[in-house]
Computed example of a mutant assay.
Amino acid sequence: MQWSWSLGRLFGIDTRVHASFVLVLLWAVLSSYDGGPAAIAYGLAFLLAVFASVVAHEFGHALTARSFGISTRQILLLPIGGVAQIEGAHMPPREEFMVAVAGPIVSLLLAGAFFGLAALTGDLTPHHFLGALAWANLGLGVFNLLPAFPMDGGRVFRALLSARMGPLRATEIAATVGKLAAFGLGAYAIASGRTMMTLVAIFLYFAATGEANLAARRFGRGPADPALWRSMSGFPRRGGPDRRGR
């Protein structure tokens, strides 16, 4: 909290941005500096529009959780995405499935809306502001549906497994798949020189490890590495093996 600033309360939920977000704004300015003030303004506007879409994605999680009587402590914006820090204990599989899939659905709906608006201008390519925003939301929705725990798709995968084998074993399997996906994503990112994607891969690996250790702690096996069980995960953070937080 001391390294973040409040953006206000929406739907009764505190929305904050981490101080490291300043680095993203600086990157946006530097990357468009050669184009002059107009290019800088365009880059900043697009960046803010994308992160507004991320906030909408996280509210999809938070408001769906609220429909099940589960509150959200805050939504935190980070340079690599957002985290909805959802309170409460372990969710039943059906509830976790619904909460996990809600964020990508919001992103896909936004993508459809922006594609529709872009079609009115006759330009659906990423070179047009609306087209670029549509493609960004489509990418956000599809990427988060990948079964790489603890991303949303991994949460959906874990929820489906939990209904058959219980939360501990389901988390172990989902976390293993998530770490393998992180290795694959990291290898691709390094080979293609994508720095941000490399950071996401590292984040996913430690988040999956932390979630597995946290599940072991909650359900009776002690964590393999006590230092890792506190690591932040993606969509919700719920004080248990289930979340972010996004």
Rank of each mutant, 00 (worst) to 15 (best):
S20C: 07
S6P: 03
M232F: 10
A191I: 11
G82R: 05
S107I: 09
R218C: 06
M196R: 02
L7P: 00
L10P: 04
R218S: 06
S53F: 02
L78N: 01
D34T: 09
M197S: 14
E95F: 08
G184E: 05
P126Y: 12
R230K: 15
L23H: 01
L10T: 02
H90R: 03
F21Q: 09
A208D: 11
L63K: 11
W5G: 04
A49D: 07
G154T: 03
H128M: 03
V156Q: 14
L10H: 00
A28F: 06
T171G: 11
W27R: 08
I86M: 09
S231D: 00
L110I: 04
T198Q: 06
A118G: 11
M151F: 06
F235M: 13
F206P: 06
V17Q: 07
T125P: 00
A207T: 02
G234V: 04
S31Y: 13
V106F: 05
A28K: 03
L48K: 07
I105F: 11
A174M: 13
T171Y: 11
G141Q: 08
R66L: 09
R158S: 03
S192R: 12
A62R: 04
M98R: 12
D242F: 12
L26S: 08
R169G: 01
L48M: 13
H18F: 10
L76R: 04
L185C: 11
A65Q: 05
L146S: 06
S231W: 10
A207M: 05
Y205K: 06
S4N: 09
G88P: 15
L109D: 13
S32A: 14
I70R: 14
R66C: 03
P241F: 06
L228C: 05
D14G: 02
W5D: 12
T176I: 14
